[in-house]
Design a protein around this nucleic acid. Structure first.
Length: 751
DNA sequence: TCTGCTTACACGTTTGAACCGC
DNA sequence: AGCGGTTCAAACGTGTAAGCAG
């Protein structure tokens, strides 16, 4: 999951040593992933330039708790959602329609931000359109490499973002797992949920300080290679200007196409003079239908057909930058660049959460807001033929005024999320749900002040090579003590399997049914669909960097599965012993308990019910959100149809993951290490809990999928500052390297 | 045989270079 | 030479349908 999660800052204080363990784990409960000494050594090996900037920089303070995002074309989305949004995916990449058109507010006008889009699975199911509705028919395909689409304006000031509509209509979806264009790779016939992330970037070299993630439930969709629902087709045609030709009055309408077909049959060739077509269907002959030279002549003689009614909701936003101006040159978004930024982000999140007092959280959770949403939500999903959206449970989602489409609710959940400790301590599901969804307005957050992770360093720009996983620089991090047998296995596994990805992870996960509620999650039912491979190691999508064992522990439970899992594997009975949840996925197990057992009849899920979708899943909180979305599969397939939250009700609050307490600032990542080991990069998904007191483990927010590696897709935008663009030129090792799949920087221009 | 994916196709939209006039 | 407006063709986006593969 894309968790731009945060790599903890580079601060290598005493706590850093402890970070060699899963920091949020009770020490006695688990073994340190890596010997502190080794980690310490690695820390010392870090170049000075990697050290974080001075803390408490007032200039970085951002009213993150006030950051809000609105889905500008929410009404359009809702129209589609009521029918069941389908998105075409093609090998070459297909744009999304409707597109994501957003309005941001609450940003610090003077600070720079990155706006990212990622799309995460809503559940572990594969769907089929049967009987006029979508039904889950099996397990999901292996998780594909996650990619992040960086808005081309990034980084831009808060003033910039707030002064215009932010559109991601240039983002493309593909089902080509080998896509090298930087498109977002998705599986066909799966359900997905787009997420928007706003990340503070003090400058091109320093990300972090604040991250806000927003999820609009009405934007979830099913991927298809061909439209299944005629209603969707009609909606698309009527709404998308590019499809005007297929409208009733268009030249590519059914009527016209039939006429063409008729002529074709009659004449046996399309090149004939239209005049000669009369015998077949003179009445249908329209100038518009002719494309040949002769046709054009005829066209000149005919009256022009009425222009298609341009009344569509689609208003291509004015691209801030002309596409033409941007060369589709490969942009090497250096791993170091990404890694470092991710680290920054992670830090900021951690800080924000850390700052949140438990009492405040509790108050928030138990606030009166809860009732407000709970009482309103029931109206949901009246018309939707869409499978149940895992996100909002009707009884828990706040129901914004459906009539107010122009003002989608934007709720900052920072405080809510930051209340993780409370959540974890409380098994009260309703409370948890409340905290997740009920805040109509963003409560003040103590969260984070921006924390730049990386200090600007000239060398950073000039030494792209050092970023490469293959560079000698890695050597400094090869802390032998950290290298466990498991690591070796992992490495071997990675090497043996050129396919770094998910396939393995998911399938392998299926081997341990017990893990359904844990990070290892694959639904047993998925087994048939996802034949499991082989080794436990295969559970992890991302190949681990053998040379960087120490980086793993720093993530704590919040660490992306790929990294974590391998270590878990090293523990005896890890896969079979439920207790291991407490170890690495304590949060998850806890959350599972908090949630009511899934009603999902799914045989496999019954024994180990995956948490049914809870409002918390709406939490963009990386983990929480993911889990919730991932947990969707736990819902009975039969229950899906018609259960989708009704978009009309929607304006579901967006989730601000920045406030997640799990992301404790205490946890620090070493960007350097990250750079050299792409596979260890944190996922954008902040779901990973981090520094909660060991006594009070964070709620588990793990998704059902092993990992959500961050993949940034963008091209060097002219608007980028020089240094920023420079970063994009860094080498990529992604596809070629078994472990490099983690970073898949786009080499094309995107907007 | 069925389902799903790929590809070619036709049409409309977008984009930007070329052209023209001031 | 510079600027602004218009024209036009290529690129791109779109849904459809045929063909193919499993």
């Amino acid at each position: 999951m894309l968790s731009m999660e945060m790599y903890p800052s580079l601060t290598l204080g005493p706590q850093r040593i402890g970070d060699c363990f899963y920091r949020d784990r009770p020490a006695p409960a688990h073994m340190p992933m890596f010997p502190p000494a080794a980690c310490d050594m690695a820390a010392k090996a870090l170049p000075q330039r990697m050290l974080p900037p001075p803390p408490n920089d007032p200039t970085t303070k951002t009213p993150k708790d006030q950051v809000k995002m609105e889905l500008e074309n929410a009404s359009l989305w809702k129209q589609f959602t009521t029918v069941g949004t389908e998105m075409i995916i093609t090998k070459k990449g297909r744009r999304m329609f409707p597109g994501l058109r957003l309005k941001l507010s609450g940003l610090n006008p003077s600070l720079r931000y990155l706006v990212l889009l990622d799309i995460v699975p809503l559940d572990n199911s594969r769907y089929r359109f049967q009987g006029g509705a979508w039904q889950a028919v099996g397990g999901a395909e292996a998780r594909l490499p996650d990619r992040v689409f960086i808005h081309p304006d990034s980084p831009a000031t808060g003033a910039h973002w707030q002064s215009r509509t932010i559109s991601f209509h240039h983002a493309k979806l593909t089902n080509n797992t080998l896509d090298s264009q930087g498109h977002i790779i998705l599986h066909s016939l799966h359900r997905y949920q787009p997420r928007i992330h706003v990340i503070e970037a003090r400058d091109v070299l320093r990300w972090g300080g604040g991250q806000h993630s927003f999820v609009f439930p009405e934007t979830q969709f099913l991927t298809v290679t061909a439209y299944q629902n005629n209603k969707i087709t009609e909606l698309k045609i009527n709404s998308n200007p590019f499809a005007k030709g297929f409208r009733e009055d268009g030249m590519n309408s059914k009527k016209q196409r039939d006429a063409r077909q008729k002529r074709k049959i009659c004449d046996g060739t399309e090149t004939l003079d239209i005049v000669n077509c009369d015998p077949c269907d003179s009445t249908d002959l329209q100038p518009q239908q002719m494309t040949s030279a002769t046709d054009l002549q005829a066209l000149a003689l005919a009256s022009l057909p009425p222009m298609p009614n341009p009344s569509c909701g689609f208003r291509p936003e004015e691209a801030p930058y002309q596409a033409s101006l941007i060369q589709e040159q490969p942009l090497d978004l250096g791993q170091a660049f990404i890694a470092s930024h991710m680290s920054d982000i992670g830090i900021s999140m951690a800080n924000g959460m850390q700052d949140m007092p438990g009492s405040e959280v509790a108050n928030l959770i138990e606030g009166s807001d809860t009732q407000a949403y709970t009482s309103n939500f029931p109206a949901v999903q009246a018309n939707s033929s869409f499978p149940l959206a895992p996100l909002p449970q009707s009884s828990f989602l706040p129901v914004p005024d459906s009539s107010d489409t122009s003002n989608p609710q934007t709720i900052d959940y920072t405080p809510i999320l930051s209340s993780s400790p409370t959540l974890s301590s409380s098994s009260n599901t309703p409370l948890l749900q409340q905290t997740t969804f009920t805040f109509p307005t963003p409560p003040p957050s103590n969260s984070s002040s921006p924390q730049p992770l990386l200090s600007s360093s000239p060398s950073y720009h000039t030494m792209p090579e050092t970023i490469s996983p293959h560079t000698p620089a890695d050597a400094s991090f090869h802390a032998p003590p950290c290298q466990s047998g498991l690591q070796d296995q992992i490495s071997a596994h990675s090497l043996l399997n050129d396919q770094p990805l998910q396939g393995d992870s998911i399938s392998s996960a299926s081997h341990s049914p017990i893990d359904q509620t844990s990070a290892v999650f694959i639904y047993p039912n998925n087994l048939p669909v996802n034949p499991a491979p082989v080794t436990a190691l295969s559970n992890y999508n991302l190949p681990l960097a053998p040379s960087l064992p120490c980086s793993l522990p720093t993530h704590g439970t919040s660490f992306p599965f790929p990294s974590v899992s391998p270590h878990m594997q090293s523990f005896p009975n890890m896969s079979s012993n439920p207790s291991h949840h407490a170890f690495n996925f304590q949060n998850l197990s806890h959350q599972t308990q908090a949630f009511p057992p899934s009603s999902f009849p799914h045989p496999s899920s019954l024994p180990h019910p995956h948490p049914s979708f809870q409002p918390s899943s709406c939490l963009a909180v990386p983990s929480s959100f993911q889990q919730s979305v991932s947990s969707a599969p736990s819902m009975p397939p039969t229950a899906y149809p018609q259960n989708l939250a009704n978009p009309s009700n929607s304006s579901y609050p967006q989730v601000d993951i920045s406030g997640i307490p799990q992301f404790n600032p205490a946890a620090h990542y070493r960007p350097e290490m990250v750079r050299h080991h792409p596979s260890l990069l944190p996922q954008l998904d902040p779901s990973l809990p981090s520094n909660l007191p060991s006594s009070n483990p964070p709620q588990s927010l793990y998704s059902a999928f092993p990992s959500y590696p961050l993949r940034l897709c963008q091209d060097p935008h002219p608007s980028l500052s020089l240094p920023f663009r420079h970063l994009y030129r860094q080498h990529q090792h992604v596809h070629a390297h078994p472990q490099g799949s983690y970073l898949d920087m786009s080499t094309r221009a995107v907007y």
